[in-house]
């Protein structure tokens, strides 16, 4: 038997009522790398991503079978403390969703909740997180201002900084750049490449160029199944399955 990777799914299925949105998916996410999930709308890639930190639990009528392994712990087991596991998995969405609080508070909120009360330490975390999200220089003089006053691209980087503030081991990105202009998108992509040194990143994207640019591994989803999964170069240049090729070519063309 092969040891499951430190972060992987095993035979994972997600149901919404009677509808099976995800069908028996087993895949691993290697450390220090970016895995891109691609596929047409409704293929289940976002559902799959959201199930990785059990955000699906919040949707009434959803249930899952199979396992999600993280350092030998089964995240789907009934006794698992979902809240605690989410503290180790950061998430960023398509639309930026900063808290209705100051820039500083957006970052300091999580660490403070985790028990860090020391002001100096918090200041440090805010600065580090904002630097890692490449936002520090733009906002360092207005940390007390409302986060909602930032531009869309800045807000998105703030959300990444917020996710980083609690030092997650995994970062889930759900089309993080699709609502942004090209300049902001470029910044986010640079950021992803920079961040993967310390993190496992899983990104859902509709943009094939983006998937090719930022990811090390690519997984192609279709109708809730994992059609093909492998190194990005191989998937994009020499896919095994026809449907993968068609999707990628169609998208490129």
């Amino acid at each position: 038997m092969v040891m499951p990777m430190p972060f992987s799914t095993e035979d994972l299925s997600i149901y919404y009522g009677e509808f099976q949105a995800i069908k028996n998916i087993s895949m691993g996410f290697p450390a220090a790398s970016v895995t891109a999930l691609i596929g047409p709308s409704g293929c289940g890639k976002s559902t799959f991503l959201r199930s990785l930190n059990r955000m699906n639990d919040e949707i009434a009528g959803s249930r899952s079978t199979g396992h999600i392994w993280m350092d030998g712990i089964d995240l789907t087991a009934s006794g698992t403390d979902v809240i605690k596991l989410r503290q180790r998995i950061g998430m960023v969405w398509q639309r930026p969703n900063p808290f209705y609080k100051s820039i500083y508070e957006n970052i300091a909120f999580g660490p403070r909740y985790y028990g860090i009360k020391n002001r100096k330490q918090l200041d440090e975390i805010v600065e580090t997180s904002l630097r890692r999200a490449a936002l520090w220089d733009e906002v360092k003089d207005r940390l007390k201002e409302s986060a909602l006053a930032l531009s869309g691209g800045q807000q998105q980087r703030l959300c990444i900084a917020r996710a980083l503030s609690v030092n997650p081991q995994i970062l889930l990105l759900d089309e993080p750049a699709s609502a942004l202009d090209p300049v902001s998108t470029g910044k986010i992509e640079e950021l992803i490449t920079e961040l993967k040194k310390d993190l496992r990143i899983v990104i859902v994207t509709h943009n094939m160029q983006q998937a090719a640019r930022v990811s090390d591994y690519t997984a192609y989803f279709y109708l809730g199944t994992l059609v093909e999964h492998g190194e990005t170069d191989q998937i994009f240049t020499n896919p095994e399955k026809n449907s993968t090729q068609e999707y990628i070519m169609g998208r490129f063309g």
Partner: peptide, 22 residues
């Protein structure tokens, strides 16, 4: 907005903390 709640969940906050602080 639902996204506010989700942001809090993803950060590993308790439901009650999300309700009162977010």
């Amino acid at each position: 907005p639902r996204e506010q709640k989700e942001a809090g969940l993803a950060l590993g906050l308790s439901k009650w903390k999300i309700i009162t602080s977010i």
